[in-house]
């Protein structure tokens, strides 16, 4: 368990934080991920890589956190808890746009561009066909680009 955490803890934490925008909630999601791993380690079939398996569990825990969260009373503006005082202007702008995308699009952008998953791995983590991953990622990245250029997401 320690070896898994040492290897994947930071990666999962950043994944969860980028989607939740809150460090405590992200840490809870990661903790719940490792608890689920502990409880279900015997069910790992070895069909997917360990990182894909962990990301799939973590993604579900993030979804649980989002479901438990009360709906925002105001539109999301700014980069929220995703930037620190040392963050560059580019990162601030990116997160501000990222937070305006819907959760499905955020997941895809993170899984492909930060986690570096292959098409098949993204399909496995999200439980959707490869063709759907391709088309949804196409529109998600278009949306993000549009937002970064100052346009609305729709």
């Amino acid at each position: 368990m320690d070896a898994l955490y040492a290897r994947f803890g930071t990666r999962l934490s950043r994944f969860a934080l980028s989607l939740l925008g809150d460090q405590d909630a992200a840490q809870d999601a990661v903790q719940e991920t490792f608890l689920a791993v502990w409880q279900s380690a015997g069910t790992y079939q070895g069909g997917s890589s360990v990182s894909t398996w962990l990301l799939g569990i973590c993604r579900n825990k993030v979804r649980d956190q989002l479901r438990r969260r009360p709906p925002p009373t105001e539109p999301l503006n700014g980069a929220g808890g995703l930037v620190s005082p040392g963050s560059g202007e580019e990162a601030v702008e990116l997160w501000a746009c990222f937070r305006q995308m819907d959760e499905d699009d955020q997941e895809l952008i993170q899984l492909v561009f930060h986690q570096g998953l292959s098409l098949q791995e993204v399909a496995e983590v999200l439980g959707i066909p490869v063709g759907t991953v391709k088309s949804r990622t196409f529109y998600a990245r278009r949306r993000l680009r549009q937002l970064l250029r100052g346009g609305d997401s729709e």
Partner: peptide, 14 residues
């Protein structure tokens, strides 16, 4: 851009 912004996020808090 996504990779570099995500890598700049803090790691586990505890």
């Amino acid at each position: 851009r996504v990779e570099s912004a995500t890598e700049a996020l803090p790691g586990p808090a505890r």
